[in-house]
Amino acid sequence: MALASEILVTVLILVGTFFLFVGSLGLAKLPDLMRRLHAPTKATTLGIGALLIASMLWFDLVHDALSFHEVLIALFLFMTAPVSAHVIAKAHILRDAPTRATLPPAQTSGWATLEPHPADPRER
């Protein structure tokens, strides 16, 4: 039993490390920002997720000390990673004219980043 849980923790640590490494490798390797954005947002969240599960299991099974606060970091990262990716993509669309030229049209109005801000006091 103890051996099985140790093997589980080891495998989870190695899996998490692999995905973290691949995420950073993608960040360094891919050619443009929109492609680079894919690597860290996905790979690092699963990497961190696996590491945190490993840490939780390690305290719970190997050391018999109840520990569950790792869930907080995991939940926080899973909620914030899409938001950071979204704001980075929005800023990229606003700043980069070649990217703007490749955007497909939206259904009925323009994309929110490029439209004037309705709540903007300077434009009211």
Binding site: H38, T41, T45, P82, H86, A106, W111
Partner: peptide, 27 residues
Amino acid sequence: TGTITMTPGTVSADLSADGRSVLVHCL
């Protein structure tokens, strides 16, 4: 939009101003 970013090869990049379409970037 959060789900789109976390799942297969897609990142949600923008919403339309009227909130009726999402701009998605595929890897």
